[in-house]
Design a protein around this nucleic acid. Structure first.
Length: 358
DNA sequence: CATACGTGGCG
DNA sequence: TCGCCAAGTAT
């Protein structure tokens, strides 16, 4: 009853392939549960390439749960700024506090981990297996796609039944001797070989037992909406004391609550000059076409009133602000704040930069 | 169970 | 200028 057809071959083939092809990623070089936990949260719905730009810097500042628990939320968000899904950062912060309030030990089991805010079925299984060796099968988007293809799928199967079948198949195939490697191998296979479109079946280690060799129906996508808007980059004082006007989103906003951004201005208002910058920014299913106008302190008086907090922020402080990704992007493009040189500590605004370039 | 939640890159 | 994604969770 233990192993159905082909299970041993599946495990052997997959693990051998993973041994040869695993990408060298920072969170694969550690056995520290905290480091693995942080990586799993950052990787939720987020590309590896994007996480790499944040992970090391975050871990240097918050090397353990205690460090994060002691930090202010604003600083946590500042280190997450641009990564998206900020609720993840808030929940991770809450979870760290929760752990420190209960003795400081990270739970070692799926059941225990599942209690933590921000840790769902996938993440609990990932941490339990990778950090603690529990034989729990992970099912993320990659694994789901791999298994649907591997098992085959009938037209009339209900989605609930399919989910169950995927979970069961993942558990059946899981190598109980090496759950950490097996789970990561499954995800790696989905991420690098069993691609959503154009799967690389010829190089697939489990091709032989695969029912479909790559067929996969994808759900029709939702329509994108478009919206035009404009931001004002209001500035005052000369370099290096330059300040820009920022506005804080309401604490109860559904989107990016409590984070700071440039003040929005009337998109239609006749601006004398062309925008200093135009960018597209898509959030969920809305494409924002954003124009940014550079304005002076005088003109800030023409701003519409708001309940929100507005403050003049020194350019050199921007790195420490929990900015929205869009405002961060704009401030970097306009060289009001420096970009990152990849992973590493935050660096201060360089003194060599003479003045704002527009 | 559907929906909201962010972002940057690519064709 | 536009569609689609990528290691999910909470409600």
């Amino acid at each position: 009853m233990e192993s159905g057809p082909g299970v041993d071959e599946f495990r052997r083939g997959l693990l051998a392939w993973y041994g040869e092809n695993a990408r060298d990623l920072p969170w694969r070089r550690t056995a520290d549960p905290w480091a693995i936990w942080v990586s799993e949260i950052m990787l939720q719905q987020t590309r590896v390439a994007a996480v790499l730009e944040y992970y090391t810097r975050f871990m240097e500042r918050f090397p353990n749960a205690a460090a994060l628990a002691e930090a202010d939320e604003a600083e946590v968000l500042a280190h997450w700024s641009g990564l998206g899904y900020y609720r993840r950062a808030r929940m991770l912060h809450q979870a760290a506090k929760q752990i420190m309030a209960h003795g400081g030990q990270i739970p070692r089991t799926v059941t225990g981990l599942r209690e933590l805010p921000g840790v769902g079925e996938y993440t609990a299984a990932a941490i339990a297996s990778i950090a603690f060796g529990e034989a729990a099968a992970v099912v993320d988007g990659n694994v789901e796609r791999v298994l649907i293809r591997y098992m085959g799928q009938s037209e009339e199967e209900e989605s609930r039944a399919l989910k169950t079948r995927i979970q069961e198949e993942a558990a059946r195939l899981l190598d109980p001797e090496r759950p950490a490697d097996f789970n990561q191998a499954m995800m790696e296979l989905g991420a690098t070989m069993c691609l959503p479109r154009g799967p690389l079946c010829l190089g697939c280690p489990v091709q032989e037992g695969c029912a479909t060799r790559g067929e996969h129906v994808t759900a029709p996508a939702k329509k994108m909406r478009s919206r035009e808007m404009a931001y004002g980059l209001f500035r005052r004082k000369a370099w290096p004391k330059t300040e820009v006007l920022l506005e804080q989103r309401p604490a109860d906003a559904s989107l990016m609550a409590g984070m700071w951004e440039l003040p929005e201005i009337e998109a239609k208002t006749a601006q004398e000059d062309a925008p200093a910058l135009t960018v597209r920014h898509s959030i969920t299913n809305t494409n924002y076409y954003v124009s940014v106008f550079v304005l002076n302190a005088q003109q800030s008086r023409e701003l519409a009133g708001t309940e929100n907090t507005r403050e003049w922020i020194a350019a050199r402080m921007l790195m420490e602000m929990p900015l929205t990704g869009l405002s961060r992007k704009i401030l970097k493009r306009l060289k009001v704040m420096p970009g990152y040189d990849g992973p590493g500590p935050l660096h201060a605004l360089e003194e060599s930069t003479d003045r704002i370039v527009l």
